[in-house]
Design a protein around this nucleic acid. Structure first.
Length: 424
RNA sequence: GGAGGGAUGGCCGAGCGGUCUAAGGCGACUGUCUUGAAAACAGUUGUGGGGUUACACCCACCGGGGGUUCGAAUCCCUCUCCCUCCGCCA
């Protein structure tokens, strides 16, 4: 959510931001109008309330029955007027808030202008693409041949875009998750195990509702929603909190499965396990002071890159342009790992500085050490590496001519002695 | 799932229709005193909104929402959460 004061004082800045995101600017004018209407109503209704409070207090002291009755009658009328105005104010505020909730964060000035994902900028590339003296297979051939990915069973028990991992494949994914959590702990994050279902207010705070309602799964009779990313519960942990400056920054990491309807992307990436309705992810999340969020962004990008390097995955870092920037992000770096089989750079991580956008929605503040008013924190989030895609890259890049896959050494402690995955 | 009890400021806790502008205590902060500290004494001590150049001032908030009333922390309805007991259960 954007600061209403900012929109009021610098509407052109907000309009430019929306234009850069390839969005309409009309909502800004509606916001300004509703804001003005709101303040006019507040002044009118609060003057009446002040009068009613004062007179009601008098009534308690008045002895004369006739005078008392006259005042009560007068205040009854004032009360009716207040009720009318309060209702109009309530409607105006709701309209205003509903509209504000749909406005995205302002892009950082350094974010390159671009109309869509085709104009994202590669900022660096790390590692050489693996060379093969045979034709490397995509994971949708490699996995079933090894007996570690089963598409048919996933479809049988649930439907399209679901799959089952088996044996060493399931274990490899679990190893990746466990290893990543341990790595992030060494990088300074505190592990959190959170609920995988949250209430609507939590999703609103994280910026998922109301905009992404169609992409979420929910319980049909209760206000419980399956998390689309650990970012949601990790944002919710400090909803309505006032943190102490001395406790900042707070660095968290958490593993959750992620559930997404992906209705909008039906038909995209249907081959293999790259895009499903359920996937696992280890997330990094930071709450910090505004002045340190840029440094935290650099740290988090570095931590995600380290994950790729330790796994031996060639990767590139892309800066998203204004047209591709996510709803809550002010600046985002994507990390894409090379997958040799499908010959594709796969987005395995996305690291964003959300500035005060979620903090305002979720009401997360901190008290400066020297005292004074609580200020909004900044929040950042990034994937430690998203699961099926990291698994794809590991499998495809480490395959050998005989169809076996060499397990990256860092994962050995979790593999129970399996250093090479061979057909079963 | 059933029965009962509860939710008040940073914390404890009183208040159950009109000086509540929420008692009292604890904690914290400031000042006086002191070489310093403690003690004592005095004062300050929430959030959000409106308003103002800045003050002043005003409004709202006693778990959430709704209602009754001239007036609600206080009465009514409802929801959520916590506690106790019963049932069921991984």
């Amino acid at each position: 959510m954007l600061d209403i004061n900012l929109i009021r004082e610098q509407p052109d800045r907000v309009r430019k931001a929306l234009e850069a995101r390839q969005m309409e600017t009309a909502p800004v004018d509606s916001v300004l109008q509703l804001d003005e209407q709101r303040r006019a109503l507040i002044q009118e209704v609060e003057a009446l309330k002040a009068e009613r409070n004062a007179v009601s207090k008098e009534i308690g002291r008045i002895k004369d029955a006739a005078e008392r009755q006259a005042k009560i009658e007068a205040m009854r009328q004032v009360g009716e007027r207040i009720a009318q105005l309060d209702e109009r104010l309530r409607q105006t505020e709701q309209e205003l808030n509903d509209l504000l909730a749909t406005l995205p964060n302002l892009p950082d000035p350094r974010v390159p202008y671009g109309k869509d994902e085709s104009e994202n900028v590669v900022v660096r590339v790390h590692g050489d693409l693996p060379a093969f003296d045979f034709e490397p297979k995509p994971h949708w051939d490699l996995g079933p041949a090894l007996g570690i990915i089963n598409f048919e069973q996933g479809v049988k028990i649930t439907g399209s875009r679901f799959y089952v991992l088996s044996g060493a494949g399931a274990r490899l994914q679990r190893a990746l998750i466990a290893w990543m959590l341990d790595l992030h702990i060494r990088q300074g994050y505190t592990e959190k195990y959170t609920p995988f279902m949250v209430k609507g207010q939590t999703l609103f705070g994280a910026g998922q509702l109301p905009k992404f309602t169609d992409n979420l799964y929910r319980d049909h009779e209760e206000d419980l929603w399956m998390v689309p990313t650990a970012e949601v519960p990790l944002t919710g942990l400090h909803m309505d909190d006032i943190l102490e400056e001395a406790d900042l920054p707070l660095l968290y990491t958490g593993y959750t499965p992620c559930f997404r309807r992906e209705k909008m992307s039906a038909g995209r990436d249907v081959r293999g396990i790259k895009r499903g309705h359920q996937f696992d992810k280890v997330e990094m999340y930071i709450y910090c002071k505004p002045e340190e969020s840029e440094a935290m962004l650099q740290k988090m990008v570095g931590d995600a890159e380290e994950t790729c390097r330790l796994l031996g995955l060639p990767y590139r870092v892309k800066q998203l342009c204004t047209g591709d920037l996510g709803f809550g992000a002010s600046i985002t770096y994507d990390i894409e790992a090379w997958a040799a089989g499908c010959q594709e750079w796969l987005e395995v991580s996305s690291v964003s500085n959300v500035t005060d956008f979620q903090a305002r929605r979720a009401n997360i503040k901190y008290r400066p050490a020297e005292g004074g008013k609580a200020r909004l924190v900044h929040t950042l989030n990034g994937s430690g590496l998203g699961m099926p895609r990291t698994l794809i890259a590991v499998l495809e890049n480490n395959q050998q001519a005989d169809g076996s896959v060499v397990v990256p050494p860092v994962l050995h402690p979790w593999m129970g002695g399996i250093e090479v995955i061979r057909p079963e």
